[in-house]
Write a protein that binds this DNA or RNA. Sequence first.
DNA 1: AAAATTTGAGAAAACGTTTTCTCTTATTGA
DNA 2: TCAATAAGAGAAAACGTTTTCTCAAATTTT
Lengths: 338, 338
Amino acid sequence: MVGRSSRVTIHDVAKAAGVSVSTVSKALNDTGRMAVETRDRIKSIAADVGFRPNALARSLLFNRSFTIGLLTNDTYGRFTLPLMAGISEALVDQGVSVFLCAIEDDPGLAKIHVDAMLDKQVDGIIATGKRIDRSLPVDLAGLPVPVVYAYTAGAEGSVTLTADDMQGAELAISRLHSVGRRKLAHVTGPESFASATERADAFRRMAGASAIILHGEWTEAWGHQCVATLFDRKGSDRPDGVFCGNDQIARGVVDALRERGIRVPEDVSVVGFDNWEIVAAQTRPALTTIDMNLKELGRIAGLTILDLAEGRAVTPGLRKLPCNLVVRQSCDGGRREN
Amino acid sequence: MVGRSSRVTIHDVAKAAGVSVSTVSKALNDTGRMAVETRDRIKSIAADVGFRPNALARSLLFNRSFTIGLLTNDTYGRFTLPLMAGISEALVDQGVSVFLCAIEDDPGLAKIHVDAMLDKQVDGIIATGKRIDRSLPVDLAGLPVPVVYAYTAGAEGSVTLTADDMQGAELAISRLHSVGRRKLAHVTGPESFASATERADAFRRMAGASAIILHGEWTEAWGHQCVATLFDRKGSDRPDGVFCGNDQIARGVVDALRERGIRVPEDVSVVGFDNWEIVAAQTRPALTTIDMNLKELGRIAGLTILDLAEGRAVTPGLRKLPCNLVVRQSCDGGRREN
DNA sequence: AAAATTTGAGAAAACGTTTTCTCTTATTGA
DNA sequence: TCAATAAGAGAAAACGTTTTCTCAAATTTT
């Protein structure tokens, strides 16, 4: 013997019941044939001694670990945590557990973690990140287990899930329209981000070619700065609605507007993106924003990796999941014009 | 056979090398006696066919899974993520992986996750939460594996790690003193939180009995409100330094001060608590604050659970780890008085 | 040259399950 | 009453490792 177990095994149950381990196994799994009273007696004895089958032994036998790996380079957990919640929710009642591996942007660390997960025979890997147009610093193609990419760029022919940026943006802009806003501006992140350009494209299409789009950083400070650009000039040119690329920018915009005595939402309506509660709910007035439903995305990622792990066919490609609008005060329902 | 493996096993290596599996095992583990050229030949063949030992099989044998569980009810990950980073960093080169289980505050869910972790033979469990004076909704005493509590209340006689709130508060107050502030106020969370009262006690002791302490919510709004209370009155009574119970309150305070034209840090210095980058760094001016070194706390938790898992003795009890001061503009170095 | 020792490598058991196969005993049918 | 069948339960193999034990061949010692 190499190690020593203090846990109760099926052998202990067999001994206690005076039967063989095979009989115990069949009794507990409701397989095989045996007298119903034998089965019940064994079940009750197993419960009494607190027997729980060693999942490692079962895994070895079934070649299935009921374990998956979640690989992420999103340090703040902004995207990973909601995703993780959805994954966990989808898998917990299937008895599947999740290894979380935070790899920063270190390829070496990533490889170590991937190897460790493979050694531990994970049934699949979900890769996730902080932006949809960059991939993790490790090649996950050709692994002996299925991989699903969620909110990070996937390899060619892979299964990739992401939020529908364009539809989300449309939702935001429609909202501004529906409360009567016509002179819209869009303040968002760098053009190097696909999310930014995709949302900006939707904005351009819906708000008209003349509508202003300002690309900058994903920060409050950028929101502040843009308000100076947009509002410190003649009244007629001022926007009456601002669609922001994320909630941090939106917060900067709202704060800067308040500093100028411009009322939100009475004078200007503001819509954010992300529904990052910590920002959106603390802003005064609280932000109307777009929720990417990352938890739902995680749920689907979990179910998908399960499908793949169990050999069911999944059509590969990029699948965009719809966003939805969360209404708070910064763009509430009252119509102002028209 | 129950399942079917597509992975290369030690048997494949043995076949390829024309030796027995025992010889392969000994060759790869540098054990047993054999001709050095045999060993090298086997090693090179193993590398060629990409053999990696099945960790499940080893776990079964050694009764050691090289896996631990991290149980948390901190949904936002405010505390869990830095902790997780530290744990992971401490354990990754020992080959230990981490199951992350988010249990909200649901006892049923907690039990399911704990059982799943035990079934998978975790070597230990680290329990963590969002406040040090509440325990998770599940009893972890009497488990067949070691448990370490980090930033959550532990059972009697358990190993519990936490940040030293008092020392952190002292650091903050010393800082305010050292920049010449003498009329201090403390704006913090509810008295029902041990962290709030402990920091408040330190404040009372260092700032004098007459110093003002305001207990309320852990929100920006409360910070705002307190500024109204403290500063909308005769000048001589106004504080010149505010120590805030967390960064969100501090942000509220700083914003409210700015709205009143009171300059930070020229007129009033502000110190926060938590060093939650997302808040502290975005505040204008950026917040001087206390960092609880949660990553280091996680690192120690990881090493401790490893000690326990490997049978080394660990003295039980509550261990408080020191905080440190992070200086940003809201309480920078320039002296104003004296 | 015979005996003792060392070297090299394989067989088998073990970890904790599940499942297939086998075997004995009880029950049914003629 | 005897053969055919069903029921009940156990033995053994399998999953992929590691380690102990055994054994033959090669080497050293006397």
